[in-house]
Amino acid sequence: MKKLEVVIPIVIGLGLFILLYNSGLLSVERSLTTLAEKYLEYIPDASSIYTSMAFEVVTAVIWDQRGFDTYFETSVLFFAIIATLAIASKLEDIIGERRSLTIIVRLVTRILAPIIVVVSISIALHGHITPGGGFQGGAVFVIAPLLLMLAYTSDWIRSRGFTDRKLLLLRGLGVTLIALAGLIPVVYSYTTNINAYLFQNQAKPDSFFNYPAYLQTPISTILVSGTIMLLNILEFIAVLTGFTLAFYYLTREFEKRGGGE
């Protein structure tokens, strides 16, 4: 038994090393793969035929090149929230006393929560220009309601009008609108007989359908990168409502067990 515990890790480690060495992944002078080079070259380049009109290549790959895949990732999170609901949604009133935390924590939370919200919105809206995006922004946003729920008890979020049903509605709306934005090219293709693909963003060599890359406003021209900014905003809404809902139920469970003080 003892011998086996030593031999197995060594064999696995040796196998891994040989595999990595032979595939060239351990080499110091490793260059980018051809696909990565193509992505880095074409996506930010507005004159290229494969452009996404976005400077942030990672977000562009996530929402443009593999938008269909990302949609299902979002749906998986959606179903996870539904499963949480099924287990923890028995919202009977909590018996026993619950008090909000001390004035020190409440005051600091009130100051910090708006800052967190502003940062998260900035991360989500700049997703196609700087690193970030809808999911990352949503995940940052959730800290604000979590802090407020811990400082003021979980009733805070309901007393502000954000009931769990409304949050779930927003969550479902976000996921549905993402699917709709991906389906619009297909509908367009069927109605006008012009080639267009599912989750298409900019024009491709054999398809001239494209979302507008720039938005003209009276003040200035805004780069929206076609669907990427729209999908980032929708994903932001979907993620923040989903996580807020999950934390709402977790906080309630925590309070039920006599936490809260």
Binding site: L101, T102, I104, V105, V108, T109, I111, L112, I115
Partner: peptide, 20 residues
């Protein structure tokens, strides 16, 4: 300055609630 302000606000509150 903003980061310093956030640290100055959040650290005392955090240690206070931990000790409490």
């Amino acid at each position: 300055i903003i980061a310093a302000g956030i640290i100055a606000l959040a650290t005392p509150a955090g240690s206070h609630i931990l000790a409490r």
